[in-house]
Design a protein around this nucleic acid. Structure first.
Lengths: 194, 194
DNA sequence: AGAATTTCGTTAGGCGGCTAACTGTCCGCC
DNA sequence: GGCGGACAGTTAGCCGCCTAACGAAATTCT
């Protein structure tokens, strides 16, 4: 479970009350924000429990998925099979795709290699680079692990109808783009001030 | 930013494709799940950036909020002021409310005390216990920090109308209760097997 | 009253992120 | 053709979270 968060969210009336003192506090916005983080945390907790039972972390799992997407032809059943891009293989590409630093990726690949799910191979042409490859053991692990993982995520979302899922995704996408824009402006302000 | 997550979520067609191979994969459920985590991560990232700029972590901030809720009368403007419960003060209560272990709370209070936001005082009646109290500096910090924090969360949610926020909270609550139920059943299964 | 259990806070050690600094390799430019 | 940057991967060290185990104090059970 990732970040520390209040177990019981403040009730809406409390937010209304607090808004009297802090005019910047938008009660419904704060409520939505808190619920978003809380729910995501809880949903993630359920899958993470499954991950740790299989002795793997979210980060390592993410790397395996990226490699799996790249090793398997992917477009085998698609008409334009040859157009399918091969996913990332270098640590740097993996780090970029997984949204972590290269240093973190080094650690993840270290443990994955130690567990035999992955091997590192030097790049023959550019001697700075490495290739990270999924082993047969790694692929076997995914093949055994994924069905249960998918069942869990399906169960978590099973209370929502197809329409509800659609609206949820739509609303989340709005928030996400807003957050991304805000983050960009934050970075801009930071680089301008330094 | 808490957990490692794919930067670009797989497109829905890819999920449909993968579902052919994994019958347990419910494409719309997986899509909703991934969007939920991704959006929460991004939204949290925006506020966390603000937190770290003020040299504080989400965990410490959470503790300060809990203490603040407990020190201030809270019900000052409410009719039934005397019925207002006083919030947690012991490390154990704080840990429970913040959803972390007591060991973690020790560390959080350590750094908060080092920064002068909080003091520890031994309980006069039960010598096992400590009382954690917000200092004037801690309250001043909150008073200066919160407006900006509220502005940020309001901005993140500003793309949603009041109605959209309501439906979002409703859908999230459904997911949350489902996740909580699942977690309970997981725990049950675990304790039964051991 | 004394022993066993519970509870509180802390410590020790692990893990997974991060930043910053380093080594080694490639590339462009004079 | 050598040299300064740019880039890949690693290392070192920090922080926040976790679990496990501990000593001290309170509580419960004989």
């Amino acid at each position: 479970m990732p970040h520390l968060l209040l177990k019981d969210l403040p009730r809406f009336e409390c937010l209304l009350e607090a808004a009297k003192e802090f005019p910047d506090l938008d009660p419904s916005a704060a409520e939505a924000y808190l619920h978003l983080l809380r729910t995501s945390d809880e949903a993630f907790g359920v899958t993470e429990r499954n991950l740790t039972e299989h002795n793997i972390s979210q980060g390592r799992f993410c790397v395996l998925m990226l490699l799996w997407r790249s090793t398997r032809p992917g477009g085998r059943n698609l008409p334009d099979a040859d157009a399918i891009v091969i996913g990332p293989r270098n640590p740097a590409e993996l780090a970029e795709a997984a949204n972590v630093t290269r240093a973190t990726m080094t650690g993840l690949v270290d443990t994955l290699e130690r567990d035999g799910y992955v091997v590192r191979e030097p790049d023959p042409v550019d001697r700075r680079m490495m290739s990270v490859c999924l082993t047969a053991k790694g692929e076997r692990f995914l093949r055994e692990f994924l069905p249960g993982h998918f069942r869990i995520t399906s169960t978590v979302m099973s209370t929502l109808t197809e329409n509800e899922r659609k609206t949820l995704v739509r609303l989340l996408a709005k928030i996400q783009s807003q957050a991304a824009a805000l983050q960009a402006s934050q970075q801009e302000a930071w680089s301008a001030s330094s």
